[in-house]
């Protein structure tokens, strides 16, 4: 016993080292498997306040960039507004010949599928393998887990954790993130992933190599994920080649969003999310 105590005392630093390393590694493993609730809550509540102050300061120096982005988005939205008043569910479509007549049609088909909560980015990273962003809107404003985050030039990420006033999102620049997308010109479905190398380029997976593609083809969201509305822009094909021994293309995608210069985003709220999820759960059971 005395020897044991003596041994422990002599190696106390080593034992403390082992304990602390063990605690850290438990965090690492848990954080990798599922987002740790304790971490996120602390980070959201306290980090939110610190990062807000900081982002106000930072935004002051980037007013011009932010302005340009908003002006661009404004022009884009004006153009979109002329084309359609609502995003419609075309399976339940009722024809009408002028915009005025929409006012009189009380139909479910005219309910928008998504609505948007504007938010400001208060913290954002692009230089890691797993990048995250923090937004200044939280549960109080209606933000929930699994809502899409859309920037002025295309999709940015997905909300994964909310607190009362703030929320955290997984950026597209995260090696664990994947998004259901399609090629605009032929509706071919694929999966967008990030290889962790450059914040400018992503990778489009699962497009079979009999599908004709060319550099510059536009890639948009498929609308099948319940998270993002369809037809939101993501990027363009920057480079493609055959992979030896594989039946799918290697496709490099240039993101339309500059993740280093993001200030304002919209959080897309799927108004039918619960219904869609419930249906999906039934499908899985059978």
């Amino acid at each position: 016993m005395r020897y044991l105590l003596h041994f422990l005392w002599k190696n106390s630093a080593f034992i403390l080292f082992l304990i602390l390393e063990l605690i850290s590694l438990v965090f690492v493993v848990n954080g990798n498997r599922h987002q740790s609730a304790v971490f996120s809550t602390v980070a959201n509540q306290y980090g939110g306040k610190i990062f807000t102050t900081y982002s106000n300061f930072r935004n002051y120096f980037h007013l011009k960039d932010a302005n340009d982005q908003l002006a661009y988005e404004n022009a884009f939205l004006k153009e979109k507004l002329q084309k359609a008043l609502f995003e419609m569910d075309s399976t339940n479509f009722q024809s009408f010949d002028s915009i005025d007549s929409t006012m009189f049609i009380q139909s479910d088909s005219l309910k928008p599928l998504f609505d948007y909560i504007p938010a400001k980015i208060i913290s954002n990273s692009t230089n890691r393998q797993k990048n995250y962003l923090m937004l200044n809107k939280g549960r109080k404003h209606g933000v929930r887990k699994n809502m899409g985050i859309i920037g002025p030039n295309g999709i940015v990420g997905v909300v994964f954790e909310t607190s009362e006033d703030y929320s955290s999102g997984i950026s597209l620049l995260n090696i664990k993130q994947s998004v259901s997308v399609k090629l605009k010109h032929n509706n071919e479905l694929g999966i967008l992933i990030w290889d962790g190398i450059s914040p400018l380029f992503g990778q489009l997976d699962a497009i079979e190599n009999y599908v004709p593609i060319s550099v510059g083809d536009t890639i948009i969201t498929s609308g099948f994920s319940h998270i993002f509305p369809g037809n939101e822009s993501i990027g363009t094909v920057a480079e493609f080649r055959e992979m030896p021994g594989n039946t799918i293309w290697y496709i490099k995608v240039k993101f339309s969003t500059d993740f280093k210069k993001l200030f304002w985003v919209n959080i897309a709220r799927n108004l039918n999310y619960e219904q869609q999820k419930a249906l999906e759960a039934v499908e899985l059971e059978n």
Partner: peptide, 16 residues
């Protein structure tokens, strides 16, 4: 770690 969503990675490296 807490403020960067890195879950114990900095802690492990620093302690080492």
């Amino acid at each position: 770690d807490v403020f960067g969503h890195t879950y114990g990675m900095h802690a492990a490296a620093s302690v080492f």
